[in-house]
């Protein structure tokens, strides 16, 4: 595990605060070990979210009617998806919507979300496409 200088300083300060002038080499050792353990736990959680950073892009369009976004966002919230960005336009009687969604904390995988959205699309009679963000990054960003 890599520890930055900043982290070492924080561990030291914590040790000083806890031990004051009672410090002996053995006590210092145990306190430092405990702090490092805590740090690595936090780091592991962070790394976990980075690796599976699963952002997907949902595109939907069709004839405008009431409750489309409500229905879509409700389904997303059922899946514990986090909406990161949303952009929507109405052109005459048509609406277009693009959402950037984080599915990292969702217990369901992309395929299950796609299946559910397929049903929503059929109910609302609109088109809904869900694709992994990577495909847009690869095609439009270098």
């Amino acid at each position: 595990m890599k520890i930055t200088e900043d982290e070492i300083r924080r561990i030291t300060l914590e040790a000083v605060k806890e031990l004051g002038d009672k410090a002996t080499p053995d006590i210092v050792k145990s306190v430092v070990e405990k702090s490092i353990e805590n740090f690595s736990k936090i780091n592991k959680e962070n790394i976990g979210t980075e690796i599976t950073s699963g952002r997907i892009i949902l595109t939907s369009f069709g004839l405008n009617s009431s409750g489309i976004i409500a229905q879509i966002t409700k389904t997303l919230s059922d899946f514990k998806c986090d909406i990161r960005d949303l952009s929507q336009k109405i052109m005459d009687e048509f609406y277009t919507m693009i959402m950037v969604i984080d599915i990292t904390n969702s217990p369901n995988d992309l395929k299950e979300i796609q299946e559910a959205m397929k049903k929503v699309a059929e109910e609302l009679k609109v088109k809904i496409y869900i694709q992994h963000e990577d495909v847009f990054r690869f095609m439009h960003r270098i």
């Binding site: 892009i57 960005d85 277009t96 693009i98 095609m139 439009h140």
Partner: peptide, 17 residues
């Protein structure tokens, strides 16, 4: 939004139509 509206629509158009 990290992507432009038309960039996303372009990709959808390519794959769908």
């Amino acid at each position: 939004m990290p992507y432009q509206f038309d960039e996303i629509l372009e990709t959808i158009r390519m794959t769908e139509t």
